[in-house]
Design a protein around this nucleic acid. Structure first.
Length: 201
DNA sequence: CCTGCGATCGTCT
DNA sequence: GACGATCGCAGGA
C-alpha cells in the first residue's frame, strides 16, 4: 500500500486540531519484519501550561515531560501505574508542551502479531487494543521509543491513508483525570462513533 | 451487562 | 512516602 507519512506541518498544529484529525489515520509499527497497522479510533488532547490534567501543567519540565517540549511529530511515552505505557504524539512547536494521547486503535493488518503480544484469556477481539496501555502492549511500544521521531524514522509512524472517511466524530470529557479540577470536564477526548474498539462510551 | 479491587513501580516531592 | 492520562479478573445482576 502507499504510505504517505504524516509530516511536520500536520503535527505542528494545536493539539486539539491534531487530536481530531488523527481519528481515522493509520498507526504503523514495524515488528518481526512486517508492518503491523492499526486505525486510530480514540484520542485525547493535553495542552501544555494551562491544562491541569497535563503532565506539563505550568510548563512543568522534568525528566519525564521533557519529550513534550520537543517539536510536533515526536513520541511521548511514559509509564503509568508502574506497569503500563501510554503513547502520545507530540503536537505544536518546540517548547510548547502539547500532546495527543492515543487511547484506542482498531487492528487492520498483522493481528496475529498483536495476539502474540497480548496474552489474555478474553476472546473478545476488541480487548486487544481498546485502551492506551493495551495498544502499547499490542504494538510493543515502550520507553525505548520515548522521543522517537515519527516523521523521519520507520519503526513507528503514522500515515494519512484513510481506510474510510465515513464516520461521526464525538467529543467528550477525558478519562481518569478527576484531579484536574476545572479542566477535568473539558471535551478534549475524541472518538469514532460506534467503533467497537473505543475504550468507553 | 456492570462494579469493585488488587497489582506494581517509575517518578516526583 | 504517595500517587497515577490502567488493566484483567472475579463476582453479581
Amino acid at each position: 500500500m502507499t504510505t504517505i507519512k504524516l509530516d511536520a506541518d500536520f503535527y505542528q498544529q494545536d493539539a486539539l486540531v491534531v487530536a481530531q484529525k488523527l481519528i481515522g489515520k493509520l498507526l504503523v509499527r514495524r515488528l518481526q519484519g512486517t508492518e503491523v497497522i492499526c486505525k486510530i479510533v480514540e484520542t485525547e488532547a493535553y495542552i501544555g501550561p494551562e491544562d491541569k490534567g497535563c503532565h506539563a501543567y505550568q510548563n512543568k519540565r522534568t525528566k519525564r515531560t521533557e519529550a513534550m517540549f520537543t517539536s510536533g511529530g515526536h513520541a511521548y511515552i511514559y509509564v503509568i501505574y508502574g506497569m503500563y505505557y501510554c503513547f502520545n504524539v507530540v503536537a505544536s512547536v518546540k517548547d510548547k508542551p502539547e500532546a495527543v494521547l492515543i487511547r484506542a486503535v482498531e487492528p487492520i493488518a498483522g493481528i496475529d502479531i498483536i495476539r502474540e503480544n497480548r496474552a489474555i484469556k478474553s476472546m473478545k477481539i476488541a480487548a486487544l487494543t481498546n485502551g492506551p496501555g493495551k495498544l502499547c502492549q499490542a504494538l510493543n511500544i515502550d520507553k525505548k521509543l520515548n522521543g522517537y521521531n515519527l516523521i523521519s524514522e520507520d519503526e513507528l509512524y503514522l500515515t494519512g491513508d484513510n481506510t474510510d472517511q465515513d464516520y461521526q466524530l464525538v467529543a467528550t470529557k477525558r478519562i481518569n483525570i478527576d484531579y484536574a479540577e476545572d479542566y477535568k470536564d473539558k471535551p478534549w477526548r475524541f472518538y469514532h462513533q460506534g467503533n467497537p474498539f473505543v475504550s468507553k462510551l
